[in-house]
Computed example of a mutant assay.
Amino acid sequence: MSWFESSIMARKGVAGGKPGASHKIGIEDQGTFHYVYGPYAEPVLHVEPGAVVTVETHDAFEGKITSESDKPTELLNFPYLNPQTGPILVKGAEKGDALAVRILSIKPRGPQPVGTTCLLPEFGGLVGTGDTAMLNPPLPEKVKKVNVTEQGVEWSDALTLPYEPFIGTIGTAPEIEAISSLQPDYYGGNMDLPDMAPGAIVYLPVNKAGGYLYLGDCHAIQGDGELCGVALEMPATVEIQVDLIKGHGNGWPQLENEHSMMFIGSSRPMEDAARIAYRELVRWVARETGQTESEAYMLLTMCGKVRVGNMVDPKYSLGASIEKRFVK
């Protein structure tokens, strides 16, 4: 039996993890992209649980940075960054459920050089920002364009980095708010977590009937923390399979892959993001194993792990995980 057959999605999904009808959202189908996660946009697609959806996404800059001589501040209109495809309405989804999104593939899309990274004034993990005010002058703007294929990331003539794609921004609509696609929170959003990669399943809380799934901001590779604030951004073709878990009840994003279970918390300061993620993981371990929360708390002290998604966004994202072999 494959690990997927024992996953939450396969065991508890309305479609039992079985693929359903196929759909596609191309750039033209989407039309206007969204820069907030909210419940008020008209869904671009209605699907049944089990649907397999191929989605074309823009990079974080909606393709506006085309050359290494470009100055991002002259081309970008902050806060209109991280354009999102969607929303996708999942039939039968109600508040208290979860959308299960299995990431099947992520492929670079468009003419080379597909990848873009850059330094933006007063943005990043090692510079003064609007929230961390310093007298130092901002670093100068700098753009780097990179060829990206499924065989590797051509960083320089001497160095090819591995192609490790993931979805930087994915989530469901909040119940009442419309929140910037730059910000992560309980609904998911701009978590920038490299584990959101092909093979993983993310469980996102449903806050509004239909769920309203958004996604975008794919990356070809990123280190922990997304240090300068911009990973290797790329337009992509993403294939996902969407199912529905009735009454799942988790209030924060949960990620499952072959070896681990993870919960993702987003907050400032960073330790509060870690606390949210670990609290949710403690509660899940206790439910799964029949241990008390105190026993699960002690177990995770021994074998829990933390992954930094981003340390640059309006809220930081951390994932707390445990290997499935320890959940017995």
Results as ranks from 00 to 15, higher is better:
215 L>C: 07
205 P>I: 15
254 Q>T: 10
282 V>G: 04
213 L>A: 03
258 E>Y: 04
200 A>F: 08
240 I>G: 13
202 V>R: 12
283 R>V: 08
242 V>W: 02
233 E>M: 14
265 G>V: 07
209 A>P: 15
197 A>P: 10
238 V>L: 04
224 D>A: 13
312 V>L: 01
262 M>G: 00
290 G>N: 05
218 C>F: 01
312 V>P: 06
200 A>G: 13
283 R>C: 07
203 Y>S: 06
273 A>H: 14
248 H>V: 02
303 C>T: 04
267 S>T: 13
303 C>N: 00
219 H>N: 15
278 Y>R: 14
271 E>Q: 09
262 M>L: 03
252 W>A: 07
270 M>S: 15
219 H>L: 07
213 L>F: 07
298 M>L: 02
306 V>P: 05
253 P>N: 06
244 L>S: 14
280 E>F: 07
288 E>K: 12
233 E>G: 09
296 A>H: 02
199 G>Q: 00
239 E>I: 11
205 P>G: 07
286 A>W: 02
296 A>T: 05
255 L>R: 02
260 S>C: 05
288 E>D: 14
257 N>D: 03
235 P>A: 12
308 V>Y: 15
214 Y>F: 14
272 D>R: 13
205 P>N: 11
276 I>D: 10
218 C>P: 12
202 V>F: 05
267 S>A: 15
302 M>T: 14
267 S>M: 09
302 M>H: 12
222 Q>T: 14
247 G>M: 08
225 G>W: 04
282 V>E: 02
242 V>G: 04
215 L>F: 03
214 Y>T: 10
285 V>M: 06
216 G>H: 01
255 L>N: 05
241 Q>S: 03
254 Q>A: 12
218 C>W: 01
207 N>W: 13
280 E>Q: 06
229 G>E: 01
212 Y>V: 04
286 A>Q: 05
264 I>L: 08
